[in-house]
Amino acid sequence: MSKNIVLCGVGGQGTVLASKLISAAALEKGIPVMSAETIGMAQRGGSVFSHLRMGNDAYCPMIAKGSADMIIAFEPGEALRMLPYLKKDGQVVVSSHPVIPVTASLGAKYDYELAISTLRSKVSKLLIIDGNMACNDIGSHKVLNLIMLGASIYSGALGFTEDDFRWQIQKRISPKFHELNFKALEYVRLNPQVIIENK
């Protein structure tokens, strides 16, 4: 049985690197991986997603609706958009901080508190963290992806350890950013005050 993960967010938030790190961690353990991600126009501030499938029985990199074991969402509205992919009793890990689209700044409606309360009512396994508070504390907005990976490990649903990712960070990311990324990776575990909800 393969394990299916959807990562989603807004173009520029770093979902692609997070997806690559999970793939690399799986391949390191000899688990076959297929993945697909948004490339092209939508990367410019649009809704983006990665589908990731680990295991032997996948034919294609795309995930069917109702079959994702886990959704890792960098933005609450995007979590909601991807919800139809979640399997019954699947885990959602989400950052509560909204990215306000230009359409909403100009007057279109985006009630992100309603997005979060809808997630609360529809999802049984839900970890909400304040990713913005974590970024501010760490001092960089570029590490949201590692914070979200750390939160995903913390949820218990991802199936990897922080060490699995520390190793991938060492292999793939420039040494001058190692400490920053390690700090982001373990942030949620060490700072439970950023956890808004964990059920």
Partner: peptide, 17 residues
């Protein structure tokens, strides 16, 4: 049952950075 009312989703077309 997991579909959400599209009117509560943010409208997020790609934009100039």
């Amino acid at each position: 049952s997991q579909e959400v009312d599209p009117s509560i989703l943010p409208v997020r077309p790609p934009v100039l950075c």
